[in-house]
Design a protein around this nucleic acid. Structure first.
Length: 287
DNA sequence: ATGCCTGAAGGGTTCAGA
């Protein structure tokens, strides 16, 4: 079973990239973020194209901003939109949808950006993460949380920590909120597979950041023990960030073995190697 | 001039993103 997550930065604009990518990678479950489409508009836009490919759709969107969805061709049951008891800004935003696909509770999430540390929007981000944690704590262990977390878990997940001083995505409180979610027993499957590699999922559109591989790893797949034990491969599909009209995020993909019948034993982490990093560069700076 | 890109809304410019 192949599960993917992709912040598409507008489904409408990304159609020419999404459909060929679905045909190329053939994921069984796809979590989308920043669809920027109301549910009826999404159904109108790609309902037929997805049905042709065998996907059912659980969408939770709104016009212009935010929006998440789950596509599945291995079943899509018990759909739940939004985060129970989650905060709004000030009203609830379309940032989460969950469904059960082939026995796994799948969450597609688009965590608020935070904008500026210690701002109202930053407080909203922290409250939203706390509410997400409660939802996950009440759910099954056979869960997978996919999405744009808008947090780089460690300094190894940004091209240069100095470039992000005073910015969101790297502050201790955000990272602690994410760590508390992971402490429920969720494995960051890409980092566990590539413990010392330079792996990013987002690159700013500007100033050739992608070309120079100056990015961040903020799109994560977090898997509970029963799912993490089935991980056969986990990687970031940089190819989808190349070429004409890409999203500024690349898809993250994980391949799972078939669910075992009995006890599969402990999850064994892969061996470690020293971190290799290239020369630091600054973000584009204002004058 | 955080807006060197991109997308969306609502008009011909502003806001949001990370």
């Amino acid at each position: 079973m192949r599960v993917a997550t992709w912040n598409v930065n507008s489904l409408k604009q990304r159609m020419p990239r999404l459909l060929p990518w679905l045909d190329q990678r053939r994921p069984d479950v796809v979590c989308l973020q920043e669809t920027k489409l109301a549910d009826d508009a999404l159904a109108e836009l790609l309902g037929d194209a997805l049905a042709e490919r065998g996907y059912e759709v659980a969408a939770h969107g709104e016009a212009a901003w935010n929006g998440v969805a789950i596509l599945s061709r291995v079943g899509l049951e018990d759909v739940e939109t939004g985060i129970a008891n989650g905060p709004g800004f000030p009203h609830p935003e379309a940032r989460a949808v969950a469904a059960t696909c082939d026995g796994i509770r799948v969450h597609s999430v688009y965590v608020p950006n935070g904008r500026v540390p210690d701002s109202d929007h930053y407080d909203y981000k922290l409250a939203w993460l706390a509410a997400l944690r409660e939802v996950l704590a009440a759910g099954p262990d056979a869960a997978i949380v996919c999405g744009d977390m808008n947090i780089a878990p460690t300094d190894d997940d940004v091209f240069d920590p100095d470039a992000y001083i005073g910015q969101t995505h790297v502050t201790p409180r955000e990272r602690e909120a994410l760590a508390e979610i992971q402490a429920l027993g969720l494995h960051d499957v890409v980092r566990e597979r590539w413990p010392n590699e330079r792996v990013f999922s987002y690159w700013d559109y500007r100033a050739g950041m992608f070309h120079q591989d100056l990015g961040m790893r903020i799109d994560l797949i977090l898997a509970g023990d029963p799912v993490a034990a089935r991980v056969r491969a986990a990687w970031i599909d940089r190819h989808a960030r190349k070429g004409t009209g890409p999203s500024d995020h690349a898809p993250v993909i994980v391949d799972l073995d078939e669910a075992p019948d009995g006890d599969i034993g402990p999850v064994v982490p892969p061996p470690s190697n020293p971190v290799t990093k290239r020369g630091a560069k600054k973000l584009p700076q204002a004058r």
